[in-house]
Simulated assay, not measured.
Amino acid sequence: MWIRIVAAAAVLISAIIHLEQWILVFRGTAYIGPAMLINFIGGLVIVVLLLWWRTSWVPWALTVLFGAATFGAFLISATVGLFGVHEHWTIWEVWVAAAVEVIAIITGLAGLASRPAARR
């Protein structure tokens, strides 16, 4: 149960940071702006699925994919740039988002691994 709560908290924090960055920085940016808003909405959906759909592996897989996609996009933007955005590791939101996205990946994988094997 605690893995599910930690995963949901990690995804929620990442989603809130993406909303905050959309409001303050990326609202008018062509590709990154809509991606930030979609990331927020998708994160909320994943949190709801994690907390209420306990019989399926799908929320765990979505948690892993969410963390990997957001962390991967950030790493691309911090190294070579992504759609004209070149991020830097300078503000606290960047460090917190990176940390919770890694936590989402780890807890999502742990949730998938802890599921009982399917009957054949």
Rank of each mutant, 00 (worst) to 15 (best):
W52Y: 14
W57S: 14
V64C: 08
R54K: 10
V58P: 00
F71M: 06
V85G: 09
T79C: 09
L49I: 01
A78T: 08
A69H: 04
F66W: 11
L50F: 06
V85Q: 14
L62Y: 04
A61T: 15
V80S: 14
W53G: 01
F66C: 06
F66R: 01
T70P: 03
F74N: 03
L51W: 00
V58M: 08
L51D: 07
V45M: 03
L49W: 00
G84L: 14
P59E: 05
A78N: 14
L75E: 12
F74D: 00
A69P: 02
T70V: 13
F66T: 04
S77H: 03
V85L: 14
V58L: 13
G72C: 09
W60G: 06
I46A: 07
G81V: 12
G72Y: 10
V47P: 04
L62S: 03
F71P: 00
F83Y: 15
W52S: 15
A69F: 09
T63N: 03
G84V: 13
W60S: 09
G42E: 11
A61Q: 11
S56Q: 10
G42N: 11
G84Q: 13
V80E: 12
A73T: 13
I76H: 04
S56E: 13
T70I: 12
T63C: 13
A61M: 15
T79K: 07
W53A: 03
A61C: 12
G67L: 06
T70Q: 11
I46M: 07
L44H: 07
L50V: 03
F83P: 04
T70E: 09
F74G: 11
T63P: 02
L49G: 00
G42V: 09
G81R: 08
T55G: 15
G81Y: 12
V85C: 11
W57G: 13
T63H: 06
V47T: 05
L51I: 12
G72F: 10
G81M: 09
T63F: 04
V45A: 11
L62F: 14
A68D: 12
G67D: 01
G84W: 11
V47Q: 02
F71S: 05
A78G: 13
F71H: 02
L75S: 11
T79L: 11
S56I: 02
L75M: 15
I46W: 08
W53Q: 08
G84I: 10
W60V: 06
T55Q: 12
W60L: 08
A69N: 03
